[in-house]
């Protein structure tokens, strides 16, 4: 690509000429967008509504849209210790995964972004390749190894697995952020006598905060949402995270729809909050993770 036209979006818009040529097309755009928005949001709203229904309203035919909300399901899952067990486990695992993978991955990313050494591109390839690994190929040996080291059913096991799984991605995104910080800045600091570590701390870290925040959110969500490893490496409330815990509400002995949807609603909160209030960061993580 020869020139990036980030300077004149208006011009492109005019040239692309999809919108607003005629009021008809404008209306068409809005009606399609409204339909799509409905499809995107309705299921989430329906889940929330279900979590506020009692058993009779859940099964009611025709389905009821207006009903007397009850917090019974939330009360029940609070009483069974859902929050202090599974929510806390999820939070602990996700937070520690973020911390560990950012520290390890940050160093790796810095090294990849700043130094040319033999194996740099090979490492880049390895990191990419490890993104291709399907979870099923790792979950079996990890289960066996964790069992050997008596780590099954611990949050540690999940943190280790999630860190390793996210690390390539973390390195990749952070590397791209770091590469966009001119190396002259830290070199200047180093010429002024600062050590490299100090330069990193004083110059690079503050400048890459947005990148770190984006990566942290991304890693957090990825760990928070992770199911396959959590399902097979943990078994009891001491270590299980929320995605696994909610499957407990779908047993052969019955589906507790109210509790299930209440728990699922709680589980969705961080993602939705990030998505609504920090979409910019997530998007930048997404795009940088995928495209250079």
């Amino acid at each position: 690509m020869i020139t990036k036209s980030s300077g004149n979006p208006g011009k492109i818009l005019k040239l692309l000429k999809l919108p607003s040529r005629s009021p008809f097309i404008g209306a068409l755009r809005y009606s399609i967008l409204i339909i799509l928005t409905f499809i995107a949001l309705f299921p989430l709203i329906w889940l929330f509504m279900t979590s506020l229904k009692n058993e009779i309203d859940i099964f009611a035919r025709p389905p009821v849209l207006v009903f007397r909300p009850t917090f019974q399901a939330y009360r029940y899952i609070a009483k069974m210790g859902f929050l202090e067990k599974y929510f806390l486990n999820s939070l602990t695992v996700a937070t520690l995964t973020v911390v560990v993978s950012l520290v390890i991955g940050g160093l790796g990313a810095y090294s990849l972004a700043r130094f040319r050494f033999t194996g740099n591109s090979f490492l880049a390839f390895i990191i990419l390749a490890s993104r291709m690994l399907p979870g099923v190929v790792l979950v079996i040996p990890l289960y066996l190894l964790m069992q050997r080291f008596k780590l099954t059913n611990t949050r540690t096991a999940l943190i280790i697995a999630h860190t390793a799984f996210n690390l390539p991605f973390v390195v990749w995104i952070l590397r791209s952020y770091l590469a966009s910080i001119p190396r002259e800045l830290e070199e200047a600091a180093m010429i002024d006598g600062a050590s490299r570590l100090l330069a990193i701390r004083k110059v690079i870290a503050p400048l890459s905060t947005p990148g770190i925040v984006a990566t942290a959110m991304f890693t957090f969500l990825s760990s928070w949402n992770e199911f396959l490893f959590a399902l097979n490496l943990t078994f009891s409330p001491e270590a299980q995270t929320m995605p696994v815990a909610v499957t407990g509400f779908i047993s052969a002995r019955g589906i507790a729809w109210g509790e299930l949807s209440a728990a699922a609603t709680i589980m969705l909160l961080p993602g939705l909050l990030f998505g609504i209030f920090a979409r910019k960061y997530i998007v930048s993580g997404l795009t940088r993770g995928a495209i250079k």
């Binding site: 059913n153 399902l231 097979n232 078994f235 009891s236 299980q240 696994v244 815990a245 499957t247 407990g248 779908i250 047993s251 052969a252 002995r253």
Partner: peptide, 8 residues
């Protein structure tokens, strides 16, 4: 929970 008990 029954779903994971056996495995656990």
């Amino acid at each position: 929970p029954y779903t994971t008990m056996q495995q656990k």
